[in-house]
Computed example of a mutant assay.
Amino acid sequence: MARTKEFDPDAALRAALELFWRRGYEATAMSDLVEHLGIGRASLYATFGNKHQLYLKALDLYAGEHGPVMMEELSRPGPALPAVRSVVRRFAAEAGSGDSRLLGCFVTNTAAELGPHDAAVARRVQLSWEQVETLLHSALLRARAQGELAGDRDPRALARMLLVLMQGLRVVGKASEDPARVRDAAEQALALLD
Rank of each mutant, 00 (worst) to 15 (best):
D99C: 11
A139R: 01
R89G: 00
G67W: 13
G104Y: 03
S86T: 12
R89Y: 01
A15H: 08
D118Q: 14
L158W: 06
S75Y: 10
L141N: 06
L102S: 15
R85Q: 10
K5P: 07
A83V: 06
P82A: 04
S31C: 06
G38H: 11
A12S: 00
S138H: 11
Q53V: 07
P77S: 13
R101C: 05
M161I: 08
R41G: 09
E65Q: 15
A186D: 00
F91K: 06
C105L: 15
A42W: 09
F48I: 06
R22V: 04
Q146C: 07
A186K: 00
L33N: 03
R89E: 01
P79Q: 14
M30K: 12
K174F: 03
P116E: 11
S86I: 08
H117G: 05
Y62E: 09
E94P: 14
A122G: 10
R123Y: 10
R181V: 12
R142P: 07
N50Y: 03
P179F: 07
A112W: 12
V121L: 01
A58C: 12
R3P: 07
L169S: 00
P79G: 14
L162N: 03
L135D: 06
L141G: 06
A83E: 04
S43N: 13
L158V: 07
F91Q: 08
G168W: 00
G104W: 06
V125T: 05
L56A: 03
M161P: 02
A92T: 00
A15Q: 04
N109F: 04
H117W: 08
L102R: 15
P82C: 03
L165S: 02
V132W: 05
A42Y: 09
K57G: 05
F7R: 07
G104L: 08
P179Q: 07
Q188K: 13
A175R: 13
L149F: 12
L19E: 09
A150F: 04
P179L: 08
L102T: 14
A111N: 03
G40I: 09
R181P: 03
L192V: 05
F7S: 09
A150L: 04
L162S: 02
V88Y: 01
Y25P: 03
G78V: 02
S43D: 12
L140R: 05
R90K: 15
V88P: 00
V107W: 01
T4Y: 12
L17F: 13
